[in-house]
Design a binder for these strands. Structure first.
Lengths: 94, 94
DNA sequence: TTATTTGGTTTATATCATAAACTTGTTTAT
DNA sequence: ATAAACAAGTTTATGATATAAACCAAATAA
């Protein structure tokens, strides 16, 4: 009746990050931070978790001389995101 | 951009309970437990939280000789549930 | 040169979800 | 009648989570 919700995605900030990344090719840490309003620490931790789950890729490079962390959603991440939305619908369609 | 999600509702079990109660006049503990597949302990705790938030009412009575706890959604609960769904849509409509 | 800012990471804490153990009373079996 | 099993929850304990606070290294500004 109520399908299990993927715990990796059932988190406000991680879901926001995935939502953002689902719509773009890639996005860097600073941009994600701005768009979500998250603190650096929290964002850093949640990005790690999404990465550990294989839902996003994280590349550390430089933009000019400054470090720049770029994230992108993976195919597995896209699929998990879609499944999560489908599962959610079971909960919110009364 | 990403609205805050009501933490009372952003919980798998509490959301399932609200989803159930949104569709009926009332439901008792045992029924909710069956429908959600939750353990008694977890359900008890989460029902308390929904009740403390004013989202549901909880009445303890008897069905025959056995205790029976009946829950119903409140108007505030309905409104919170609707708002939560609206907020969620911002996250899942890429 | 000494701040200050940028772009993060690490660590600590407070909350949460869940399971396990317990309680109170009822029904069933002996 | 007594004991064992069951029903309907509650309370307590534990492990996971989210978040904030503190920290760090490099670059830029004063």
């Amino acid at each position: 009746m109520f399908p299990k919700l993927d715990p990796v995605l059932h988190s406000e900030l991680r879901l926001a990050v995935m939502s953002l990344l689902a719509g773009v090719e890639s996005a860097d840490f600073t941009y994600i931070k701005q768009q979500t309003g998250a603190t650096s620490g929290n964002l850093s931790v949640q990005i790690d978790k999404l990465s550990a789950a294989g839902y996003i890729t994280v590349e550390k490079g430089f933009k000019g001389k400054k470090p720049c962390t770029t994230c992108a959603i993976t195919e597995a991440g896209m699929e998990a995101f879609r499944s999560y939305i489908e599962a959610l619908k079971e909960y919110i369609s009364t």
